[in-house]
């Protein structure tokens, strides 16, 4: 019973949400006495009183349509949803990978040296809360390439949680284990790789999980700003057309992909978890 209670409750909540949504989207009365020639030039919202908010069924129809042909390519500004997601994922993984290459070794250094930790801390605290959109103009101006700028922005926003968590995990390794390693005369490299890394791994992975979430948040904002390709551009392009059904579909897909990324790193984290 308890095993199924939570999923059951989730489904009930979803049904309730969709039901309320469906009911609350009202079409108003059609405009009366409108000149037919004039009406022909106007949209359904103005003539038939159609609501600007789509119903769940409208969104579902868009989703089916998008998933049926996800890889079409009708030119540089109109590509299938699969291609757009692939572009976004590619940028996120590249930026995130670069952040990992920098954050993990640097975090190790900071964690192992309290002096470095204290010296770098103010910089980290100032740089950590900066929004990706604030970095973008600077990146565009200096890097002079919009694609690389987007990747840089992902890098700069996703590097901090990993850095902080790695440093925290490394500095939190139990004294006893380090003392044991010392009494056994383990070399510094071996001590880092065989004692500290496994001990800090769960904390490092927690940092990565936070980072990938941030990276995925950032890419949508960055792509809405620079345009071209990606799921963020897709949402922007539909905003341009005021097509809320498409925007909601985009939002849904962003959420699902974000969850998948998070699940993947969670699975990786459990594989390195340990119990005392």
């Amino acid at each position: 019973m308890t095993r199924f209670a939570a999923p059951f409750l989730s489904i009930v909540l979803l049904a309730l949400l969709l039901g309320v949504w469906q009911i609350s989207v009202h079409d108003t009365q059609p405009a009366a006495g409108m000149d037919p020639e004039y009406a022909k030039l106007m949209g359904l919202q103005a003539t038939a009183g159609k609501s600007a908010i789509p119903t769940p069924l409208d969104v579902a129809a868009k989703l089916v349509q998008a998933i049926r042909d996800p890889f079409y390519d009708h030119g540089p500004n109109d590509k299938g949803i699969g291609i757009q997601l692939a572009y976004s994922l590619g940028r996120v993984l590249l930026g995130f990978g670069l952040a990992m290459i920098v954050a993990v070794p640097l975090g190790f250094l900071i964690g192992m040296s309290p002096l470095m930790g204290a010296a770098l801390n103010p910089f980290i605290q100032v740089l950590k809360p900066i929004s990706p959109l604030a970095w973008m103009p600077l990146a565009l101006y200096t890097i002079k390439d919009s694609d690389q700028s987007a990747i840089f922005v992902i890098f700069i926003c996703s590097v901090w949680p990993m850095l902080v968590n790695t440093a925290f995990g490394v500095s939190g390794v139990r004294r006893e284990w380090l003392n044991v390693a010392r009494t056994l005369e383990v070399g510094p490299l071996r001590r880092a790789l065989r004692v500290i890394l496994p001990a800090a791994a769960p904390t490092i992975f927690t940092g990565m999980r936070i980072s990938i979430g941030i990276a995925w948040l950032v890419i949508v904002a960055a792509e809405m700003l620079v345009g071209g390709t990606g799921i963020g551009y897709f949402v922007w392009n539909q905003w341009n057309n005021l097509s809320l059904a498409d925007i909601l579909m985009g939002i849904l897909l962003i959420g699902v992909v974000g969850m998948a990324l998070d699940r993947a790193l969670a699975a990786a984290a459990t594989s390195v978890a340990w119990r005392e």
Binding site: G75, P76, N77, P137, L140, Y141, K144, D145, S146, M224, L225, V226, G227, G228, Y233, W236, N237
Partner: peptide, 20 residues
């Protein structure tokens, strides 16, 4: 020619100045 849709004038300016 590829015609590329752009999100705003500041981005057009920056991409044009950057020779994108």
């Amino acid at each position: 020619v590829e015609v590329i849709k752009t999100a705003g004038w500041a981005i057009v300016r920056d991409k044009a100045l950057n020779r994108e």
